[in-house]
Amino acid sequence: MQSDGLRRNGAKHPETLSSTKLRKHISTLSTVLNLKDNEMDILANFLGHDIRVHRQYYRLPEGTLQLAKVSKVLLALQQGRLADFKGMSLDQIQIDPNETTKKRSWTHAEVKAVENTLMTFIKSGKVPGKFDCIACITASPEALMERSWTAVKFYVKNRITALQRESARRIY
């Protein structure tokens, strides 16, 4: 006889649900987390598994882990972002494999267009809003056609930060 909870959960075949299958599913999916030994011990204990069995059956093969880690380096290289991860371990690097946009330096024309329109924001130390950034792009469409309003906003924010750092260095 099915309990009310199983009938209400929307399962097509609630009679096939069991705690054993759930524990196995959790263990199998946890392999992609590459848990440390103490973390794996905690998970196995929580699931009621013998840790020796858990380690034997629910660990990614070493080759798979190495391939995943090296893939991060290759993706960073392909995206032109390898320098962004300087000093980081392979475990610390997080890369979106779907990201294809590369950072572009601002051209002289782009910088001039932003400064002509938004210099008051830069000098005041105030970051412009979306409306102001769109107005800037609209004022110089040829120079800024490749830039989004968020790119303009962050350019101004970075200029403000650079000026603040320069000012702080002069004080000390």
Rank of each mutant, 00 (worst) to 15 (best):
E115A: 03
T101V: 15
E166A: 14
R23L: 02
F46L: 12
E142F: 14
Q92P: 01
E115S: 04
I122K: 02
A139G: 05
H108D: 13
A83K: 10
L74C: 08
D41G: 00
D132E: 14
G125I: 03
C133Y: 03
A68D: 01
M145F: 15
K130F: 14
G125A: 03
D50L: 06
S71W: 08
P128E: 05
R23I: 01
P97Y: 08
K103M: 09
L47Y: 06
R159F: 00
S89A: 11
R52K: 14
Q56V: 01
G87I: 01
G87W: 00
R52F: 08
A109F: 13
T31C: 15
K102R: 15
P97K: 06
Q94E: 08
W149I: 07
L65M: 06
G129I: 12
N98G: 08
V127S: 04
R165Y: 08
K157Y: 07
D96Q: 06
S140C: 09
A44Y: 00
R81P: 01
R159N: 00
K72Q: 01
L90N: 02
E99I: 12
R55W: 04
G129A: 11
S89H: 07
R23E: 03
A68I: 08
K24V: 12
D91R: 00
R147A: 10
E99F: 14
L77W: 10
M145D: 14
K130N: 13
I134S: 04
L65C: 05
E142I: 14
N116G: 05
L82S: 11
D96K: 07
P61M: 11
D96W: 06
S140Y: 10
T117V: 07
Q66M: 07
A76L: 05
A109P: 03
T28M: 13
D50E: 11
Q79Y: 10
R165K: 13
A135N: 14
V127H: 01
L29H: 12
Q164L: 09
R147W: 10
E166N: 13
T161F: 10
A83E: 13
K126E: 04
S148E: 10
R81V: 02
L35A: 04
R23D: 03
A44Q: 00
G63A: 05
L65F: 01
F121N: 04
F121Y: 14
I93W: 02
S89D: 13
E39S: 09
I137M: 13
L67C: 06
I93L: 04
L144D: 04
V111T: 15
V111A: 11
Q79H: 08
F154H: 11
R104D: 06
F46W: 08
